[in-house]
Design a protein around this nucleic acid. Sequence first.
DNA 1: GCCAACGTTGGC
DNA 2: GCCAACGTTGGC
Length: 138
Amino acid sequence: MNHWLIKSEPFAYSWDDFVKAGRSVWDGVRNYQARNNLKAMAEGDWALFYHSNEGMEVVGIAQVAKEAFPDPSTDDPRWVAVEFVPVQRLERPVTLHQIKADNRLQQIALIRQSRLSVMPIRPEEFDLILSLSQNEDA
DNA sequence: GCCAACGTTGGC
DNA sequence: GCCAACGTTGGC
């Protein structure tokens, strides 16, 4: 199974909104690279939920509940949406600052390609970020 | 609020 | 097909 990281501006859609709703259709993606990542997701895959702009931290884990289908927010057949459900909130958010400070995480797209909103993440990097959420001084 | 990165558009 | 102009994202 693959691992991912999805970004949302908490202004527009926060982790709390997500938990309250119980599920979320991830639509409106208009970037080919992000779209291709959405298409590559399989049901059951895990994704880190990241707050961009405000917060700038990984706050929770989401799971793919429905694989790519035509984006309901447009008639344009090029775009797809994916449905997520919340799995759990991180004990402590993992900040972008922490991620940037960790030598082992320098390759992740979050740092290398800051504008990409849906990106793959290696399993060991995924696990490492989770472990950072449990380690005060990491 | 500014600016860097980068994707898209349109003129040639 | 190239590239300048422009728009958007997101960190600072």
